[in-house]
Simulated assay, not measured.
Amino acid sequence: MASRLTEAQQDFVSAIGTFCRREVGDRERRAKLTEHGPHSRELYRRLAELGWLGISLPEEYGGSGQGMVDLVLFLEETGYWRAPITGFTTTIIVAAAIEKFGSAEQKRALLPAVANGSVLAISMSEPGAGSDVGALTCRAEKRDGCWVVNGQKTWCSNAHIAEHILLVARTDTGGGKHDGLTMFVVPADVAGLTMHSIDTMGGKEVNDLYFTDCALPADAVVGTEGQAWGQLMAGLNLERMILAAVMLGTARRAFDDTLAYVKERRQFDRPIGTFQALRHRLADHAVELECTRLLVHDVAEKIDEKPGKLFPREASMAKLKATEFAKAMALDGMQMHGGYGYATEYGMEALLRATVVSTVYGGTSEIQRDIIGKTYGL
């Protein structure tokens, strides 16, 4: 796949790898960076100084205006090196929505801040509305020239480290369940909003949000009132490709770590990788890894060729393939590591924790399969 990259893109990947190898590469350094959670503000600030956090933002807002392929390369490489920058994924999703639908004032306020290291979060899911986002009931009502929000949100990634949250709330109940939804920009410290972290096997990543008479100004609306569903659909390519790219990088890391281990570990007077049972499994994983890489990069190229077009089938395929393979690779890597796969010293258990949730967030594998099937008229 590297042969299809331009010289500038190859240099870009090399620079990311050099940076991550130096700043994140060893276990002790990474442990220090993640001491307070899976997002390192210290590392994030350094990436901002290099200009990489604005990779997909327009130049007028401090970004470099690069396309989907370049974003995928950045996410894949940082995913490979397990860079603790979990806030980046939701930030780029929200930034794209602001760029496409936000007011001039919202763009000026938020987009340059993203390039400088500001973290953004997006809040859609509710206790009764997960895969079925259209079933959400969190309500925003007009009162005295402002919007007042009441209700609960859940599974909101990175809200606890975000400066602003993109909220999707119901503003009208008169139409269908996909009608009457509106996007709002919410300062994370606004009165009337409280949040509680949800304990997970991945650490402090997601949160419950509680809105109690939370007042937002009239200009907090992003895009068109009542049209949030269509605005959300416009961002599906990006969200799915972000997740696919991160998991592609994570799968590469699980493969490389497993390959290195089976070459080094000896039992019965020979490296365990020379036994056919493991050699054939690694061969199968190598084929799957290359198929996944080709798919993810190909879809990214298609999006760059036609940036205004939705690719529901292709983006869902990329997300489905990358997340399912990453989980399978990490699980089998843990098995081939034997007892050491369970030990934090080797890191395979951390890769398993990182991948096992990837088939759930951003649209479950079941939802991706359903979307793909529907594109074939099923």
Rank of each mutant, 00 (worst) to 15 (best):
L243T: 10
M124G: 08
H178D: 04
M183T: 01
G117Q: 06
L320G: 03
G223P: 03
A129V: 03
G79D: 06
R143C: 13
V148C: 09
E23R: 15
G102A: 03
A15T: 14
A109N: 03
T212Q: 13
L295M: 08
L216S: 04
M329C: 08
T137K: 14
G67M: 01
Q66R: 11
A326K: 15
A2Q: 11
G17W: 00
P38V: 06
E345S: 10
G65F: 03
L120F: 05
T359P: 02
M124C: 14
L166C: 04
A254S: 06
L282Q: 13
K32R: 14
T194N: 06
A104S: 11
A300T: 10
D172V: 05
G273M: 00
R313H: 12
V299M: 04
I16M: 05
E7S: 15
A244E: 12
T355E: 13
L111P: 10
D199T: 14
Q231F: 01
L295Q: 04
G202S: 05
G145E: 15
L289T: 11
E366N: 13
N116P: 02
L181P: 08
T90L: 02
A188I: 09
L289N: 10
A188S: 11
L33N: 06
D172S: 13
M201H: 09
V69S: 09
A188Y: 07
E314F: 05
G128R: 12
E28S: 10
S197V: 14
A220K: 00
E288H: 15
V69Y: 06
G37E: 12
H280W: 04
V94W: 04
R21P: 00
H178V: 02
T173P: 01
V119Y: 10
R281N: 09
Q267T: 03
I303L: 03
R46H: 02
M201S: 03
V13F: 01
A322Q: 04
G17E: 07
F12L: 03
A228R: 12
E60F: 07
F74N: 00
R279P: 01
Y61S: 06
L33C: 08
G373S: 07
G79E: 07
A159G: 09
G87H: 08
V356E: 09
N158D: 09
T154W: 07
G63K: 05
F211N: 01
T171Q: 13
R252F: 07
M329H: 01
G203S: 05
L136Q: 14
M1R: 07
A354Y: 01
D213I: 02
P84R: 11
H280D: 15
G192H: 05
G308S: 14
V186W: 06
T359N: 07
R253H: 13
M317G: 00
L57F: 05
T89L: 08
S123N: 07
A283G: 13
D199S: 13
I93L: 15
I165F: 01
G223Q: 02
